[in-house]
């Protein structure tokens, strides 16, 4: 099946690229990937997206963006790309269901929650280990839980989780926090939140559900056990670039772009996947999605 633009990913970057491309009368396919709607689907209220002074729920905002793209004729599919071939034109995008051909491709695969990388952690996922406070906080009513991380999202999750948990301990590997002063102060003022600094989680304990953590002191290397029934991760994100290694120029884990243009002509990237400056905001992703679409339109009218 042939398209003018194939968009891989369906967060703010991908869907904005979809809105602009479809509105420009191009034949657009959006492959929604492993987290349709992207990371905003795991947040609660978005307070800083322009145009929503009363705030808007993350999943709701993403549903609206999808509807807007579909309204202009973009096709959306719940498929996951398994491989890409940028060595021939049209470009070939494979999912396990189908092979799609695109005269241009916009990569908007975003990033995913970083895990600690422990075997015990992955074994207990969904059994006390979670990377989505809004999804799973409800299951920890009256329980004592831990949030690991030191940035704004860790503070936001900790605050949110006190709606359910009796106590939330924020564990951080250092004593310096990346979180903004306003978020840190909110947590410090919350009587249900405790801080435990200079501790690294080396193991998640529990058979069928989380019962505790093994912590190592960052300074003394001393190891101790800490009782808890839940572990929420907020230790940042990793760009989803596995599909593009050796196919596009990369820097660390990010795709290198110049005004969203990648090292292959006709292939564009937008949003977190190329955000080497780490703005990581819905609005900056949406903005770069718009640029990617405009660049793709320029390429399609002149470049072929």
């Amino acid at each position: 099946m042939d398209y003018d633009v194939i968009i891989i990913g369906s967060g703010p970057a991908g869907l904005t690229a979809g809105i602009y491309s479809a509105r420009a009368d191009l034949k657009v396919l959006i492959l929604e990937g492993e987290q349709p709607g992207g990371q905003l689907t795991t947040t609660t209220e978005v307070e800083n997206f322009p145009g929503f002074p009363e705030g808007i729920m993350g999943p709701e905002l993403m549903n609206r963006m999808r509807t807007q793209a579909q309204k202009f004729g973009a096709e959306t599919k719940f498929e996951l790309v398994t491989s890409v071939d940028f060595s021939k034109k049209p470009f070939e995008i494979k999912t396990s269901e189908e092979v799609y051909l695109g005269n241009s491709v916009i990569i908007a695969t975003g990033s995913r929650a970083r895990y600690l990388g422990l075997e015990s952690e992955s074994r207990l996922k969904g059994r006390g280990v979670s990377a989505c406070a809004t999804c799973d906080g409800f299951f920890f009513k009256g329980k004592e839980i831990v949030v690991v991380g030191g940035g704004d999202s860790a503070m936001e999750e900790a605050n949110f989780l006190t709606k359910f948990a009796s106590k939330v301990t924020i564990i951080h590997h250092s004593e310096n926090f990346k979180a903004s002063a306003i978020m840190l102060d909110r947590c410090k003022a919350n009587p249900k939140i405790d801080f435990l600094m200079n501790k690294e989680i080396v193991e998640v304990l529990g058979e069928n559900s989380v019962t505790g953590l093994k912590l190592k002191d960052s300074k003394t290397s001393e190891v101790e056990e800490f009782k808890t029934e839940g572990l929420f991760l907020a230790i940042g994100h990793i760009p989803n670039t596995g599909l593009f290694k050796d196919k596009l120029e990369m820097e660390k884990e990010y795709i290198v772009t110049n005004d969203t243009k990648t090292s292959v002509e006709g292939v564009f990237a937008c949003g977190d996947v190329q955000d080497r400056k780490r703005y990581w905001q819905a609005i900056t992703s949406a903005g770069s999605g718009c640029i990617a679409s405009l660049e793709a339109q320029k390429y399609l009218s002149h470049g072929n």
């Binding site: 709607g37 999943p59 549903n63 999804c135 409800f138």
Partner: peptide, 9 residues
């Protein structure tokens, strides 16, 4: 659950 974004998807 109704509050869970990924569940809606």
């Amino acid at each position: 659950a109704p509050w869970c974004g990924p569940c809606q998807m």
